[in-house]
Design a binder for these strands. Structure first.
Lengths: 211, 211
DNA sequence: TAGATTGTTAATCGATTAACAATC
DNA sequence: TAGATTGTTAATCGATTAACAATC
């Protein structure tokens, strides 16, 4: 099927396409799309070919048709519900950022152990006590989660989420989660990425990374 | 030189090694280190070989020697100074998290446009007005930066940082920064990664990612 | 010794890049 | 038509994995 890299780039293309659509630009060339992923025109053409989307040599690709195609691939028709675990600074940043941003991806429940946060609303999203994680996630048919808790709690949280039926996890905790094969985990390890940036800033390497 | 993937894994190995050292474990086998990067023992051996670090078939690798070796590679002898631009929820999460965590990587200055934040201390780090970004970064010989501002401001911020001599940027803003070749940019695009997680959660793909 | 692990090379795998006829 | 871009295949590149003699 489609590789991780291709999916990443399609997500970026869609972001640019949406902006172009707002500017009423009808068509786009592969080299224009290439900029947003720091890629090449050939790569864009290959990505779109993989999803069987075709353009014309004269005009390029039709913007809104392409958005529709990417939507069909990336979005679940009925949307996907997300649980956010951990309402510290990071958790609040995430809930604030995603509020109303991607209609097909909605944070429907937040969880924290802090009783001063429990039962309050954060950007329209209710905070539940952490010990109701599994039951609430199960009831609401949540299938995605963002883990923004300290490292020590992450595995425990992941276990509860998976028991509740969660299939994908965005994990900010700097620990390698042990999960069954059918669960997809995307780690975001800020410390590691900062250390890498520090290294390449010194070594003068000119490569760049998208993650 | 060493690839990005290798540097990423060395950072993770060091994290595990530090924990083992605290537990007074003297030696470690490659297959133990492999777990933290979701990698294989062969990969660990190859990574360590690339940095000319050797172990013994009987005991494995010497924990504190290996930490020292990785330190020598990843850390600048005198440390590196970091500027944090943007003190919203995300910025505060970052400054709180890194406070006292990695001695060789210190956030020495924060910047924000919000006058209610300016001149206050955040975890011992002073917040300067955003328009002093270039002058302060230059004076303090800052060579790394974390960008945690809205997308529209990110390019402007990056330009000022680079003019001040910054060589590496950890960029949370969802825009492709245009930078000169000698500057290393590590993007952390949470929206894109969440969309990818949503896709693979549905498609049942069992791969996993470290970023 | 026997057995597990190491260092290192060769084979495999997958993604990117180059190339080019076909198209508008 | 002339020129730029497309779809698609082949070549290149780099990283991972497999293999195995040497080592403790």
């Amino acid at each position: 099927m489609l590789s991780e890299h291709t999916i990443e780039r399609l997500s970026l293309y869609r972001r640019l396409l949406t902006k172009l659509q707002q500017q009423n630009q009808l068509y786009v060339y592969s080299h224009e799309l290439a900029a947003i992923s720091h890629g090449t025109a050939a790569q864009v053409r290959r990505d779109l070919m993989l999803m069987s989307f075709t353009g014309s040599p004269a005009k390029g690709y039709h913007v809104s048709d392409l958005i529709e195609s990417i939507d069909r691939l990336l979005d679940a028709p009925d949307g996907q519900k997300i649980a956010l675990v951990g309402l510290g600074n990071l958790g609040r940043a995430i809930i604030a950022y995603f509020h109303g941003r991607r209609p097909k991806l909605t944070i429907v429940a937040a969880f924290d152990t802090d009783t001063s946060k429990v039962n309050r609303l954060f950007y329209g999203c209710r905070c539940y006590p952490a010990d109701q994680l599994q039951s609430v996630a199960e009831e609401q048919h949540i299938n995605l989660a963002v883990i923004a808790v300290p490292a020590e709690e992450a595995q425990h949280v992941a276990d509860a989420l998976i028991a509740a039926g969660v299939m994908g996890i965005l994990n900010f905790a700097p620990v390698p989660l042990r999960v069954p094969q059918h669960v997809y985990v995307q780690d975001i390890d800020v410390t590691m990425l900062l250390e890498k940036t520090a290294y390449f800033a010194r070594s003068g390497d000119q490569r760049r990374s998208k993650s």
